Amino acid sequence: TYTWNTKEEAKQAFKELLKEKRVPSNASWEQAMKMIINDPRYSALAKLSEKKQAFNAYKVQTE
């Protein structure tokens, strides 16, 4: 089980997950979700809006 003390740690864990699963920077949210949804870190960020925000930040960083 994973635990995160801060929102920032949770966001980092979520981005690490995207990186580890090699989600391409041109992937849509739907494509990315299919690649990461079974990992416990997918739940790091509770709100869908937070997940999408972190995903978009990840995409910008990896382009």
Rank of each mutant, 00 (worst) to 15 (best):
E9C: 07
K59S: 06
L17S: 02
S25V: 13
Q61T: 11
K52C: 08
K15D: 15
N26C: 13
E16K: 06
M33E: 08
Y42A: 03
K15Y: 15
Y2T: 12
L17N: 00
Y42M: 03
K52N: 03
S43E: 13
K19R: 12
E9A: 05
E30G: 10
W4G: 08
S25I: 13
E9H: 04
E50P: 01
D39M: 01
T1E: 15
N5I: 12
Q12T: 12
K34P: 11
A27Q: 04
P40D: 07
T6H: 04
I36E: 00
A57G: 05
R41V: 03
F14A: 00
E9S: 05
D39C: 03
L17T: 01
E20M: 06
E30P: 12
A10D: 03
E20S: 08
K7G: 06
K19V: 15
N5W: 09
K7C: 09
V23A: 01
K34F: 10
L45N: 01
D39S: 02
S28K: 07
R41D: 01
Q53E: 14
L48R: 05
E30S: 12
F14N: 00
Y42C: 03
S49L: 04
L48F: 05
L45R: 00
S25R: 14
F55L: 09
P40C: 09
K7A: 10
A54V: 09
W4P: 09
Q31A: 10
F14Y: 02
Q61I: 09
L45G: 00
L17A: 09
K11F: 15
V60N: 14
K59I: 13
K15F: 15
P40T: 06
V23Q: 00
I37P: 01
N5V: 13
I36N: 00
L17H: 00
E8P: 04
T1M: 14
K21N: 07
K52S: 03
S25L: 14
Y2I: 15
V60I: 14
L48K: 11
W4N: 06
K47Y: 07
M33Q: 13
S49I: 06
K21S: 09
W4R: 04
F55Q: 02
Q12V: 09
V23G: 01
E63Q: 10
S28M: 07
F14W: 03
L45W: 01
A54S: 06
N26W: 14
T3A: 09
E30I: 11
S43Q: 14
W29D: 01
P40Q: 06
Y58I: 03
Q61V: 10
E8H: 07
N38H: 12
P40M: 08
K21Y: 09
F14G: 00
K19D: 10
Q31D: 09
F14D: 00
A46F: 07
Y58H: 05
K47H: 11
T6F: 04
K52I: 15
W29T: 01
K52E: 08
W29N: 00
Y42P: 00
Q61A: 13
I36F: 02
Q12F: 09
E8N: 06
K59A: 08
T3M: 08
L17F: 01
K52V: 12
K51V: 03
Q53W: 07
K47R: 09
E63P: 09
P40G: 06
A10R: 15
S25F: 14
T1H: 15
S43T: 10
T6A: 03
F55A: 02
F55E: 01
T1D: 15
T62V: 13
K21T: 07
T1Q: 15
I37E: 11
A57N: 11
E16Q: 10
Q31F: 12
E30Q: 10
K7P: 15
F55G: 01
L45Y: 03
A57S: 10
R41S: 02
A32W: 02
Y2V: 15
Q12E: 14
L17C: 08
A27T: 10
N5H: 12
R22W: 05
Q12G: 08
N38D: 12
F55N: 01
I36Q: 00
N5Y: 13
F55M: 03
S49A: 10
D39P: 00
F55R: 02
L17K: 00
L17I: 03
M35R: 05
K15A: 15
Y58Q: 02
E8C: 12
E20C: 06
L48Q: 09
D39V: 00
F55P: 01
A44N: 03
I37Y: 12
V23N: 01
P40I: 11
K34G: 10
E20H: 06
I37W: 12
K52P: 00
T3E: 14
K15V: 14
Q61R: 07
L45D: 01
D39H: 02
S43G: 12
K59H: 04
K51E: 02
E16S: 09
Y2L: 15
N26H: 09
K47T: 14
A10C: 08
P40N: 07
A27G: 05
S28L: 06
L48M: 13
K7Q: 10
R41F: 01
P24D: 05
P24G: 04
S28C: 08
K15L: 15
S49E: 12
K51R: 08
S49G: 08
E8S: 08
E9F: 03
F55D: 02
T1L: 09
Q12L: 12
N5C: 15
Y42E: 02
W29R: 00
N56E: 13
K7V: 11
E50A: 06
K15P: 01
S49F: 05
N38I: 07
E9Y: 04
F14R: 00
K34C: 12
V60D: 07
A44K: 03
E9W: 03
T3H: 13
I37D: 08
E8Y: 07
E20A: 08
N38E: 09
K11A: 15
K7T: 09
A54F: 05
E8A: 12
Q53N: 09
L48W: 06
K7I: 11
A54W: 08
E20Q: 08
M35G: 03
A13C: 11
K19N: 10
Y42V: 02
A46H: 10
A44L: 04
M33A: 08
E30T: 12
E9Q: 06
E20I: 05
A54G: 03
T62G: 11
K59F: 04
S25N: 10
W4L: 02
E30M: 10
L45T: 01
S25G: 12
Y2K: 15
A13N: 05
I36R: 00
K52F: 06
N26I: 07
E63A: 13
N26A: 07
Q61Y: 10
L48N: 07
L17D: 00
D39T: 00
K51Q: 04
A57K: 11
M35L: 11
I37F: 11
L18E: 00
R22Y: 07
Y42S: 02
K47Q: 11
E63H: 12
R22M: 13
E30L: 09
E50N: 04
P40A: 08
L45F: 05
E9V: 04
A13Q: 05
K21E: 04
Y58C: 04
E30C: 11
K15E: 15
K15S: 14
L48G: 05
E50F: 03
K47I: 07
S43Y: 14
P40F: 13
N38A: 14
A57H: 09
S49W: 11
K11E: 15
T1R: 13
N56P: 02
F55S: 01
K11G: 09
K21Q: 07
I37K: 12
K19T: 14
E63D: 11
K11S: 13
Q53V: 08
K7F: 08
F14L: 02
R41Q: 02
A57Y: 09
T6L: 05
R41M: 02
I37R: 11
K7N: 07
K59R: 11
K7H: 13
K7S: 06
S49P: 06
E16F: 06
T62A: 13
T6S: 07
Q53K: 14
A10H: 03
W4F: 06
S43L: 15
A44M: 04
P24Q: 05
E20V: 05
E50V: 03
Q31L: 14
A13D: 05
K47G: 10
K15G: 15
V23F: 03
T1F: 11
L18T: 01
A13S: 07
K19Y: 14
E9P: 02
N38Y: 09
Y58W: 10
L17M: 12
Y58A: 02
A13Y: 05
V60R: 15
L17W: 01
A32N: 01
F55K: 01
L17Y: 01
W29M: 03
A27F: 11
A10W: 02
L17V: 05
N56M: 12
D39A: 01
E9K: 03
W29G: 00
A44Q: 03
E50S: 05
L48Y: 06
K34A: 11
Y2R: 14
A44P: 01
A10Q: 08
W29H: 01
Q61K: 08
K47S: 13
S43F: 14
N38C: 13
V60G: 08
S25D: 06
N56K: 13
K11T: 15
P40S: 05
V60Q: 14
M35N: 04
A57R: 10
R41A: 03
K59W: 04
